[in-house]
Structures are given as structure tokens and as C-alpha cells.
Amino acid sequence: MAVASAALDAQHHEPVDQLYAETRDMRLIGFLFFLFSDVVLFSSFIFAYLYLRNSGQGWPPQGVPRPDVALAALNSAILFGSGATMHYALENWKHGKFFRYAGFMIATIILGAMFLTGQVVEYTALYTKEHVTWGGSGIFGASFFTLTGMHGFHVLVGVFYLITLLLQSVHGVYSKDKYFGLTAGTLYWHFVDVIWVVLFSIFYLI
């Protein structure tokens, strides 16, 4: 880490290369389009869920319990907390504070892993205590496990993505002026947070 910190300090005064400066906005727009495609994917499932929910007699269907709000609220606070730590990781990188950046990055990874653990606990409780399954609990089970599972998969990918970014930054891939990968990682992680705001609201709060 000391090597990476020294490399970061040495790179502070290097001019940004022309190609990077010219293509940075294009990369950003490209990444935002990628996130938008994910928004479309989630939106289609969310609207399908809301349509099915409002076309039935009652919600959740008879015999299917509501998911545990207390655990979901704690899990949400954990995931939103990881969004805040990720934001401060990027801010510290921009200001050349490598060790603070690494600390916030590690905190984000740990909080992401904690969220996934919470989701496993919730799934296990739903399966063992309430007998709610993907295929055996009607449209509620199918839509709940599909949407939250798809989100959980995005969080899992995000955790590995952040680990990769941390290792890359330790090995001097990024500098104070060239850090688009970290910006993309932060955007991705915020996107995962924002999707959870919607899922938390529609499955647990309304």
C-alpha cells in the first residue's frame, strides 16, 4: 500500500494524457447507457410485479406472509451506508488520500458482503419458517425472489468489482487525474443502492 501511495503522490503532478481527456466523457456516457439498460431491465420486472399485484384480490396472496420489515430495514441501512462509504472513497482518491480511500473502499466491500449475508438469512427464514419459495408461492414468491435475487446478484458482482478496483489502485493503475474506473465503480454502486430504494419500498413498505 505504501508503494501505491507513493505512486499516487508521484502521479499527482503528471499531466493528464490527451487521449484520456478526450475520451473520458465518452466513456462516462457509455457507462451511463449501460446503467440505463440495467434500469430498463429492473423497470420491466418491477412494472410486471406491480401489475400482477394490483390485478389480484389481495396482497400478499392468502397464506403467504409479508416479508420481515425489521430485517429489511436493517439491511437497507447497511446497503445505503455502503453507498456513503463508496462516495467518500472516491472523494478521498480525488484528494490524493490513499489510505483513507482504501479504508472507505474496504468498508464498502464489507458492508456489501453484510447486505448479501442479510439477504441469505432472509431467504433462509422465508424458506424454512414460512415455506415461501420461488416456484411454490405463486406470483408473490416468483416476483419477490426474482427481483431481490437479481438485485442481490448485482450486489455480488459489485463486491467483486470493488475488490478488483481496490487491487488495481493498489497496483498503481489509477492516478489522481486518471481514475475513470473508480468513478464507474462508484456510479455502479450508487445505482445498486437506488434500485434497492425502489425494491425496499414496493416489497416491504406498501
Binding site: G83, D193, V194
Partner: peptide
Amino acid sequence: MLALLCFGALLAIFA
């Protein structure tokens, strides 16, 4: 994103 994060945190508090 930060504004939505703040909103989400408020939802977690209320829940």
C-alpha cells in the same frame, strides 16, 4: 444518487 440515498435512509428510519 446522493439525494436518493438520503431518501432511502429516511425510509429505513421510518420502517
